[in-house]
Write a protein that binds this DNA or RNA. Structure first.
Length: 918
RNA sequence: GCUCGGAUGGUGGAAUGGUAGACACGCAAGACUUAAAAUCUUGUGACCAUUACGGUUGUGCGGGUUCAAGUCCCGCUCCGAGUACCA
């Protein structure tokens, strides 16, 4: 019987489904293990071979852990809200829910063919009201919470209201948008509306006027991680800065915890580094500067307080509130012209074109250390959004200040002994201070500390830690997202009652903004709550994906996001697999969201994802044909230099090992019907390049096609064999035959070279046992270390050895089958039954490794002289070091290299090396 | 600019500091076949030899530590990723 993978795979997939083999329940008797994939956005294009890479890896690990006796939670679902479905709806009028459903069905069909062990009973979709009810619920809780900096924890807002009533803002240390102060009596005398407005300054989910990234082409605002280099990540449209009243989440309050938490989780260093940079903690001081001949003072932030004696000018951000106050009448015209010019520059221009610009305000500030007067300038190299939007400029020791000083001819003072600032500033924090009054002679590090202390003691400012991490803008002017559980009473936002959740997404007849410029929900009829208008924005993509892992634990619970007892069992994700592209988005937001839920006591773990692995991207390997200019003749790769040719992308599915299938090509496009070819060795060889896998490059490989041609088991093994999981690599099918051949070889062990079934009940030989146990050791070790490519190699070696031994012994094959089950579950299941077992292979135990079988009677030592390997000698395994040394030196081959000399030293590494130093 | 990775045959890639290139692809030769495909066997870093079960060299470049370095340290080059006027 031959290896008929299609039949086998269908048979077992049906069996697993019918018998709910992968359905999982809490089981106190077993240790839990939670393996999660980043759930996909179901796009219209369907899956390509790159998508399943991570899913295959996580599936192998899940199945392995199950064999190791763990109760494994391995769910899957869909991140179903998103822009593409909405844009498609705008173009075609087709409701996003309809296209989303269609795409999900397609995804499911494709996923099922690969033989994953997902528990589909736990499937979730972010667009499902039963699911987003809990997204809205979390939002309400955030609205009703503030962040206490002393406790480092979210607390109920009602507590804060009580404090305001009794003591105002006195002695409060809480996270806020801006520092405001009032007394209890001031608070108590404020009207309700004003009190509500003040509370927004403290709520974790708050509505405020903020500078947002507005993308006119998409008609919506975007979060910082959705913008890159002034363009929207999705679509690549220009983004501008705009002041708008928007919902935000006070992620910044959690900055320190998000930073500290990184030390407790097992993520790659590079990913942690990316998050650290994104959070961007910097320690420094806020210092107050008085404006000369005025009562005004303003605050700057600096990490280099030690350079205070080198300040030769001050710079305000153009948007700074101090700008109008410090601008003198004489300079007003110049300043206005400058501000106007800045406003007209787009964010992109500002980033791409870094020329030095600025204007003098006419005012001077007073250096609090030495009383010198320093001019105050305005420049767009100072950002309004970071620190206080104002800096003290030290051109000698900051490259940006240096460029500015050079351009406007401002003085530059060197502060560190021996530094050369004739060409550029000296930015390094090292050296001995000079020109710095009481700091002279100190090292930079000492000076930083001493200055900070001085600033505090003399009340010139305070020590301050700043973070780059911004609050997350949470409103999107779109239709296809979660509605806010928010309504407005005369402009004041309130959240709905929790028992009225979910607030379901209403139907609209148009997905575009309204004529008044409102978001699409403005078209909805009766979009009200108790007679009050509901919020018209929807939530961003990251809302639904921030706590989804918790919902998988208890997906059907109507009373809670997750039952505390259930959460106590499954806890957090032990292994999370997904792409790096979420490093500063999803992986920050879900950590924040989880920490918030942790503060509320909803989850028992502070971090959502214990271990995280980033699978690499699978790129496309595009093929090209070369058309001779102005003709319909195509020339093979090797001969193209002789002609003037245009490379044209050709569908990779009609090219095999870079050889074009000419007949299929002629029918691929009517234009090529009459094409002619210049061949080499009778074949047309195509050129190739590695590019992103994309429809437009004709390099998309559909996993269905691979499954059809080779089977799911081959696809699984091959994707793993391609290289380390974390690497990005092009999809290249040229090696797939080798992996397929391995499965057939294994098949032939059972089926006597493709004929009838033959399994021997005989006891295995020592050699066979050795081969098997070598594999057990290797596979166990490799899976634990996510080195799946080398374990596939180990299988190949083992099967080669067993075939050479013609081993068809049941005892050996039985263990081999279990070992293979995580990688090639269908073929394993088939063998498991052929071997006479009634249960499924995934309920078995991973075989125990027995060292005994690997023991050798002889060990081979390499003898080297001065580190150079020369020959080998076999010794009995139990030979002692001295014995080995003596025999090696006496060996006849040694004489040639010893040349009669006495060795200075001999190093014997047990079972490996004898190095003789002459 | 800064941060983090990486560089090994024709290709993808293996190597707890222990004497490179596992495994696979590709290629070459052979067996089977009328033939091809499939399958199997053998060889395959480079260079020099070929009487050899031989020699030299070899993991981006230059140094160093070590009995021993692809692996550790210092200094470069190139490539990739992230981030970017964050004071």
């Amino acid at each position: 019987m031959a290896y008929n993978f299609s039949e086998i795979e269908k048979k077992w997939q049906d069996h697993w489904k019918k018998n709910n083999i992968y359905r999982i329940k809490e089981d106190q008797g077993k240790p839990k293990f939670y393996v999660l994939d980043m759930f996909p956005y179901p796009s219209g294009a369907g899956l390509h071979v790159g998508h399943p890479l991570g899913y295959i890896a996580s599936d192998i690990y899940s199945r392995y852990k199950r064999l190791k006796g763990f109760n494994v939670l391995h769910p899957m679902g869909y991140d179903a809200y998103g822009l593409p479905a909405e844009q498609y709806a705008i173009q075609t009028g087709q409701h996003p829910a309809v296209t989303t459903q269609k795409n999900i069905d397609r995804y499911r069909e494709q996923l099922d063919k690969i033989g994953f062990s997902f528990d589909w009973d736990r499937e979730i979709r972010t667009c499902d009201p039963d699911y987003y009810k809990w997204t809205q619920w979390a939002f309400i809780r955030m609205f009703n919470s503030y962040y206490c900096n002393d406790e480092q924890k979210a607390r109920p807002i009602d507590e804060l209201i009580d404090v305001f009533r009794q003591q105002g803002t006195k002695d409060l240390n809480i996270a806020c948008s801006e520092e405001i102060h009032f007394t209890a009596s001031e608070w108590n005398s404020k009207p309700e509306k004003e009190q509500q407005e003040i509370l927004l300054n403290y709520r974790i989910a708050y509505l405020a006027d903020t500078m947002v990234n507005w993308c006119p082409a998409l008609g919506t605002v975007l979060a910082n991680d959705e913008v890159s280099e002034g363009l929207s990540v999705r679509g690549g449209y220009p983004v501008e800065q705009k002041r708008m009243r928007q919902w935000s989440l006070r992620v910044s309050a959690y900055a320190q915890r998000l930073l500290d938490g990184l030390d407790t989780i097992d993520w790659t260093e590079s990913l942690k580094e990316t998050q650290k940079n994104w959070i961007g903690r910097s320690e420094g001081a806020e210092m107050k500067f008085k404006v000369k001949d005025s009562d005004l003072e303003f605050t700057i932030f600096t990490t280099r307080a030690d350079t205070i004696f080198g300040v030769t000018f001050m710079v305000l951000a153009p948007e700074s509130e101090y700008v109008p106050q410090v601008t003198t009448t004489a300079q007003k015209a110049a300043v206005d012209t400058y501000l106007d010019a800045v406003k007209r520059r787009t964010e992109r221009e500002r980033i791409s074109d870094r020329k030095v610009t600025g204007v003098f305000t006419g005012s001077c500030a007073v250096n609090p250390f030495n009383g010198e007067s320093i001019p105050i300038w305005i420049s767009d190299y100072v950002l309004a959004g970071y620190g206080t939007g104002a800096i003290m400029a030290v051109p000698g020791h900051d490259s940006r200040d240096y460029a500015f000083a050079k351009h406007f001819n401002l003085p530059i003072i060197p502060l560190i002994e021996g530094c050369d600032i004739s060409e550029e500033s000296f930015d390094a924090k090292e050296g001995i201070m000079m020109n710095s009054g009481f700091l002279n002679g100190l090292t930079v590090k000492e000076a930083i500390e001493k200055t900070k202390k001085y600033v505090e003691e003399n009340e010139l400012g305070k020590i301050k830690v700043n973070y780059r991490l911004r609050d997350a803008i949470f409103s999107r002017q779109r239709y296809w997202g979660e509605p806010f559980p928010v309504y407005y009473k005369e402009g004041t936002p309130s959240v709905t009652d929790e028992k009225d959740l979910p607030i379901e997404l209403p139907d609209v007849d148009k997905f575009l903004p309204t004529e008044k410029g409102e978001p699409p929900l403005g078209h909805a009829k009766n979009w009200t709550y108790n007679g009050y208008p509901l919020e018209l924005c929807t939530m961003p993509g990251f809302a639904g994906s921030s706590a989804y892992y918790l919902r998988y634990e208890d997906p059907k619970n109507k009373e809670a996001l997750v039952d505390p007892k259930v959460n106590e069992y499954w806890r957090n994700v032990d292994l999370y697999i997904g792409g790096t592209e979420h490093a500063t988005g999803h992986l920050i937001y879900s950590r924040f969201w989880n920490k918030f839920l942790f503060d509320l006591g909803i989850t028992c773990e502070d971090e959502p994802f214990k271990k995280l692995i980033n699978q690499g991207m699978i790129q496309g390997r595009s093929n090209f044909v070369y058309r001779i200019k102005d003709s319909n003749t195509f020339v093979s790769l090797g001969l193209k230099e002789k002609y003037d040719v245009t490379p044209i992308h050709v569908d990779v599915n009609i090219v095999h090992n870079d050889v074009l299938d000419i007949e299929v090509f002629k029918n691929w496009n009517p234009e090529y019907k009459t094409a002619e070819f210049i061949l080499e060795d009778g074949r047309y060889i195509c050129g190739w390049a590695v590019e992103k896998m994309s429809k437009s490059y004709y390099n998309v490989v559909n996993p269905d096609d691979i499954v059809k041609k080779y089977g799911a088991d081959t696809l699984r093994l091959y994707e793993m064999f391609l290289g380390p999981l974390e690497y990005s690599k092009p999809w290249d099918t040229s090696g797939i035959d080798g992996v397929h051949r391995f499965l057939r070889k294994l098949w032939n062990l059972f089926y006597n070279n493709g004929e009838e079934l033959q399994i021997s009940e005989e006891q295995p030989t020592r050699e066979e046992l050795k081969s098997l146990h070598k594999l057990i050791k290797k596979v166990g070790y490799d899976i634990e270390n996510f080195s799946f490519n080398t374990s596939v190699s180990a299988f190949m070696i083992c099967v080669n050895e067993l075939s050479a031994l013609k081993c068809n012994k049941k005892v050996i094959l039985s263990d081999l089958t279990i070992l293979l089950a995580p990688f090639a579950p269908h073929v394993s299941e088939e063998f498991w039954h052929v071997l006479g077992n009634k249960n499924t292979v995934c309920d078995e135990k991973f075989p125990n490794f027995i060292e005994e079988y690997l023991k050798e009677s002889n060990v081979t030592y390499t003898v080297s002289f001065n580190g150079k390997a020369r020959f080998t000698i076999d010794f009995p395994a139990d030979a002692s070091g001295e014995e080995v040394e003596k025999t090696a030196l006496a060996h006849e081959s040694s004489q040639k290299w010893l040349e009669g000399k006495t060795p200075k030293k001999v190093i014997v590494v047990p079972k490996k090396i004898i190095n003789i130093v002459l």
